[in-house]
Amino acid sequence: MVTLTINGEDHELDVPEQMPLLWALRDVVKLTGTKFGCGMAQCGACTVHLDGEAVRSCVTPVAQAQGRAITTLEAIGDDPTGASV
C-alpha cells in the first residue's frame, strides 16, 4: 500500500512502488489532466509538481513521490494564473 498526497488530499493506493506516477494518477486516481506523450520524459505532457519542482511523471516511480506534495493540472485552476490558462 502506498500513500500519496495529491492536490492536498491523501490517497492510499494498492500499486507497485516502481509503477510510473503517471499511471497511478491516471488509471488509479482517475486524474486525467496529466497526459501520456512520449514515455521518455522528453515532451512534458506528463509534467506534475513534486514539492513545487516540475518532474516528468512517466519516468518517476510512485516510491519517489511518497511523502511529497504532488500537484497536478487539476489543481492549478484554483489560483489566478491557472485560471487564466
Score class of each variant (00 low, 15 high):
2 V>C: 09
5 T>D: 08
6 I>L: 07
7 N>Q: 05
8 G>T: 03
9 E>T: 15
10 D>T: 13
10 D>F: 08
11 H>G: 07
11 H>L: 05
11 H>D: 04
15 V>E: 04
15 V>S: 06
17 E>L: 07
17 E>K: 11
18 Q>D: 15
19 M>S: 05
22 L>V: 05
23 W>P: 00
23 W>Y: 13
23 W>N: 03
27 D>I: 07
28 V>L: 01
38 C>S: 06
38 C>Q: 02
39 G>M: 06
39 G>K: 00
40 M>I: 12
41 A>Y: 08
41 A>S: 15
41 A>G: 07
42 Q>H: 14
45 A>K: 02
46 C>S: 09
46 C>A: 03
48 V>W: 01
52 G>M: 02
53 E>K: 15
54 A>I: 05
54 A>M: 07
54 A>E: 13
55 V>S: 03
56 R>T: 07
58 C>T: 08
59 V>I: 15
59 V>M: 11
60 T>L: 10
62 V>P: 00
64 Q>I: 08
65 A>Q: 02
66 Q>N: 12
68 R>Y: 02
69 A>F: 08
70 I>C: 03
71 T>P: 00
73 L>I: 15
74 E>H: 12
76 I>M: 13
76 I>T: 14
77 G>K: 14
77 G>Q: 12
78 D>K: 14
79 D>C: 10
80 P>G: 04
80 P>L: 01
80 P>S: 03
82 G>H: 05
82 G>W: 05
84 S>T: 10
84 S>Y: 06
